[in-house]
Write a protein that binds this DNA or RNA. Sequence first.
DNA 1: ATCTTTTTTCTATGGTTGTAGAACCATAGG
DNA 2: CCTATGGTTCTACAACCATAGAAAAAAGAT
Lengths: 198, 198
Amino acid sequence: MPKVVDHDQRRVELVEATWRIIARHGIEGATMRDIAAEAGFANGALKPYFPTKDDLLAFAFSHVFSQTGRRMTDATIGRSGLGALRAYCLEILPLDDIRVSEARIVIPFWQRALTDSTKAELHSSAMLLWRDTMCDHLREADTAGELRTTLPHEDLAGLLMNLVLGAQITAVLSPIENSPDRLVAQLDACIRLMAAGD
Amino acid sequence: MPKVVDHDQRRVELVEATWRIIARHGIEGATMRDIAAEAGFANGALKPYFPTKDDLLAFAFSHVFSQTGRRMTDATIGRSGLGALRAYCLEILPLDDIRVSEARIVIPFWQRALTDSTKAELHSSAMLLWRDTMCDHLREADTAGELRTTLPHEDLAGLLMNLVLGAQITAVLSPIENSPDRLVAQLDACIRLMAAGD
DNA sequence: ATCTTTTTTCTATGGTTGTAGAACCATAGG
DNA sequence: CCTATGGTTCTACAACCATAGAAAAAAGAT
């Protein structure tokens, strides 16, 4: 029998090479040849794992979402209410190199999703999940008396969603005015405005 | 003497054709041939006005920013403080077809700016201007006693900036949960949280 | 009516891309 | 040691793009 390869692991390898290329040279520079070279293979080696380029990109993008989502839920264990909400949002903000790279990947993804309904639905469902989780934490906070405002939870969650998504852009394209500590200050400002204590 | 053409007006015509193409088929489909066809010309007719494609895109993007900026400042005349701030932000939110189209153009622009420092600086300077204007209105509101919070104006302005930029994404990719009235409700929620009355 | 100059069209070219498929290689069992 | 087979590389190809430049058209001035 011939050399045997773990296909799933190889797929993840290729996806990580794709991330590095997109984060470094943008999605325009992410050609099949460059991705293969980054992973240490020749052009045609990708075909058995991802028959077409779109398959590769779709897998890469959904992998980013699941990775971020796992990190977010991990950050909330042992917390509830506004504390959980804050930890949840903090995990999306581009505060370190890894999450800045994720921002540099999600922005090209948005652009692709504009004309690709499959990618649009992937984004829509992921955002709906995040939004619902934020609503849950807001409800927890409300019943615990942590909330000062009586505004609908949906609007507050939508506000936070737009905040963290907008931060993906400003953190990358206006890093001076949106350094990590500024972004945290903005999030804390938003949460403190909702909180009962002040 | 030959046929005389208003070059500046022709340039604007071409830019508007470019918008329509990008809004309809995405930036990938915005080839020189398609843009020329949309404007009613042949491929090579663009060269005298925009020698290269990058010149065309740069002009198109800066035109969007100046158009939006003009609309924003127009909306604030006769207002001050939180009222002006609200009107200013309302003009950025993608609430009608025109502004949704603008969102469909600015998202590809962000993607391009990731690997094009010229576009990044264009974005950075435009955002800095908007941010400063928001700070001015916040200062007005503060001296007028409209503000409840003592948080730094810079963080509140940054918060609003991220809100309206994030809305560009959610309005296009999650339109159901972010319909125009929901977006306005989110903005009003944010402003009411900062306001004195409650 | 003709000429001159700007504007527009048309054709060509060099380069790059995604994809396909043939040739080659490495490895585990007989 | 041999062989069958999954994995990899290499080359090729068809399509597409931006751009350049020559050719044609248009329109006011003489």
